[in-house]
Design a protein around this nucleic acid. Structure first.
Ligand code: MN
Ligand code: MN
Ligand code: MN
Ligand code: MN
Lengths: 218, 218
DNA sequence: AAATAAAATTAGGTGAGACTAATTTTATTT
DNA sequence: AAATAAAATTAGTCTCACCTAATTTTATTT
């Protein structure tokens, strides 16, 4: 049996692996989960014993085939519940992440599949992240961010990389949603701030961090 | 903050209090939860410190006003999720209890109310138990069992007192559901077995325990 | 009332999952 | 290469929620 904490660690490792192709270190995991590195070392031992990860000082932490499978199914449950909360219970997109963080741990052989069917087999969650199918396959995951767009370039928001309510509420205030069209007017070389036009409206300036948190399609 | 275990204890005490009007002892709680009496004594101390119960060797365990309120809200969540699982995800009534046992612990200020609305404000759960409203009020709770019916008496099943899949599957096999009409043909005085006719069909014999697990309306 | 049985409680212990503080290893500067 | 900084690890502690075994209290028989 896999515990709730183990699941959260697995999911965290999975996310770090998808995000950056970099080496996954104990410190990175600790930061991401808000835990102490010493606790992470304990858990690395546990997950290694359970053959869900491999750890090598050179290569860092890597998911085993089983670990990847498990992580994918946790992500599947998380994203399906997010769709449920938004579409059926009328939550806003900045409220659903934390609740899904708990719902994802409910284990029942057929629950995810039934929920999937009930929701009409959605491809993406409300933040634009692809929902893994029962077989682990999933739709395309975008990786280009607004910060990668060249000056003058036009793009369309396809997903958010940051799901904190601070970021999502800021997006709401700016009128940005999945599907919104953005044009990059200018990149300020001093601090990489971005001057953008949202849906053709007047120019607004956002930070580099902001740009790196929005996934787009050109 | 109230933990998952504390919630399970509270709900257990609430159920024992509703079921039998008897004194609630550590042993009774231990049996009901499948825990050791020593563990129950630990938890009694914790819940007493949190002012959710009172314990007196004479009177046994009693819920405080706050404890009652909390327990009622856990029950509300449990029963609402059961309705969701049955009606929206097409589970059978013998599969939903254990999943709801986990879902009930997910805490979010508005989740239960949204779910309630989404489900159309159901009065009863799939086992015939009344669902507490947001204000704690709930529809009538039946207390007469099939074992209380007099020979020749006619009644209608309104709820099940036992939600184990063993019992529910047995009911399924007998063709008994909420709403089914049952006539008590004879009570065997030797062991209180009951000879019944289900929806006017041929006579069948069931045990006393069975009779005490079915709540009916005359 | 004394003996016996049952229930409640205490004492001490375990494993999970976190922590802090100290130490060791590895990487980066100077 | 030595010094310094950062990262990883170890050692020891804590809380939660359970356990077993022993003891004390309460109830039931004889
Ligand atoms: Mn989680
Ligand atoms: Mn999401
Ligand atoms: Mn529960
Ligand atoms: Mn029920």
């Amino acid at each position: 049996m896999i515990t709730l904490s183990e699941e959260n660690y697995l999911k965290c490792i999975y996310r770090l692996w998808q995000d950056k192709g970099q080496k996954i270190t104990p410190t990175a995991i600790a930061e991401s989960l808000g835990n102490n590195p010493a606790s992470v070392v304990d858990m690395i031992r546990k997950l290694t014993d359970k053959q869900l990860i491999n750890y090598d000082k050179k290569k860092g932490v890597e998911l085993t085939a089983q670990g990847q499978k498990d992580a994918t199914m946790i992500v599947r449950r998380h994203r399906l519940w997010e769709v449920f909360l938004l579409e059926k219970l009328d939550y806003h997109w900045d409220e659903i992440h934390d609740i899904a963080e708990e719902l994802e741990h409910i284990k029942d052989a057929t629950l995810a599949d039934r929920l999937d069917k009930f929701l009409g087999f959605p491809e993406y969650d409300p933040h634009g992240d692809p929902i893994p199918k029962a077989n682990g396959k999933m739709a395309k995951r975008y990786s280009t961010t607004l910060a990668d767009v060249k000056t003058g370039g036009q793009c369309r928001v396809v997903a958010v990389k940051d799901t904190t309510s601070q970021f999502l509420q800021y997006l709401q205030k700016l009128g940005i949603n999945i599907g919104t069209k953005i044009q990059l007017i200018e990149k300020i070389s001093f601090d990489n701030s971005l001057v953008i036009s949202i849906d053709g409206a007047e120019h607004k300036t956002v930070s580099q961090k902001f740009g790196e948190s929005l996934l787009i399609d050109m």
